[in-house]
């Protein structure tokens, strides 16, 4: 009851408002999981595609990319789990979640129709990855992700310029630098906060 009875001066009111607004932070660090899931899946898909292309006579080594569909379901699962366990939902949490849904849908459509673009998935995957990473970084104000997004866009440009097999290695490198490293930095930060 004591809080209720206290009289507030105008200065105290403003200080209180500022302090409470600063407390309202969401659970953005939990989102590292999305970078690790997508990062490892894309790196694995690139290397598997490269391996199938170089060391087997398989007609369509591109099928390696279908493992990304696992990511769509894993993202949905982790998104649901994080949403359910959190006691507060900030606007940036919400926008951040929708960025991942939007780009997840993008990956999904791209993989389903890869035949229509003659299986030239790599530069487009890099473009989508760059977009989601850059926007994530801006939303949660985390610089390593912003730089990661830029790295992925550069990887997309390089991928457009080099032959198919080299594209795969470019993509794996781009994802390692642009997704996985910022993802692990975020995870490390997360660990420190808990």
């Amino acid at each position: 009851m004591e809080k209720e009875e206290q009289n507030l001066s105008n200065e105290e009111s403003l200080k209180l408002i500022t302090a409470m607004i600063n407390k309202a932070k969401g659970n953005i660090q939990d989102s590292y999981i999305f970078f690790l899931v997508w990062g490892w899946l894309v790196v694995f898909a690139c290397l598997l595609h490269y391996g199938l292309l170089k060391f087997t006579t398989m007609e369509h080594p591109e099928i390696a990319w279908f493992i990304l569909i696992i990511g769509v379901f894993l993202s949905g699962y982790f998104g649901y789990k994080i949403g359910k366990s959190s006691s507060v939902k900030t606007y940036s949490d919400s926008i951040h979640g929708h960025i991942w849904i939007a780009f997840g849908v993008g990956y999904f459509i791209l993989i389903i129709f890869m035949k229509e673009i003659n299986y030239n998935l790599n530069p487009l995957i890099m473009l989508l990855a760059g977009g989601s990473t850059y926007l994530s970084g801006i939303t949660i104000k985390f610089r390593p992700l912003i730089y990661g997004g830029i790295v992925l866009w550069v990887a997309a440009i390089i991928a457009f310029l080099v032959p198919g097999d080299i594209q795969l290695l470019t993509s794996a490198g781009g994802i390692l630098l642009g997704y996985l490293i910022p993802g692990y930095i975020l995870k490390y930060k997360n660990g420190k906060h808990v």
Binding site: L16, I17, A19, M20, I21, K23, A24, G26, S87, V88, K89, T90, Y91, D93, S94
Partner: peptide, 10 residues
């Protein structure tokens, strides 16, 4: 002040 900065809170 808390609620004005978030979408919802428990």
């Amino acid at each position: 002040s808390l609620l004005v900065s978030v979408e919802q809170a428990d």
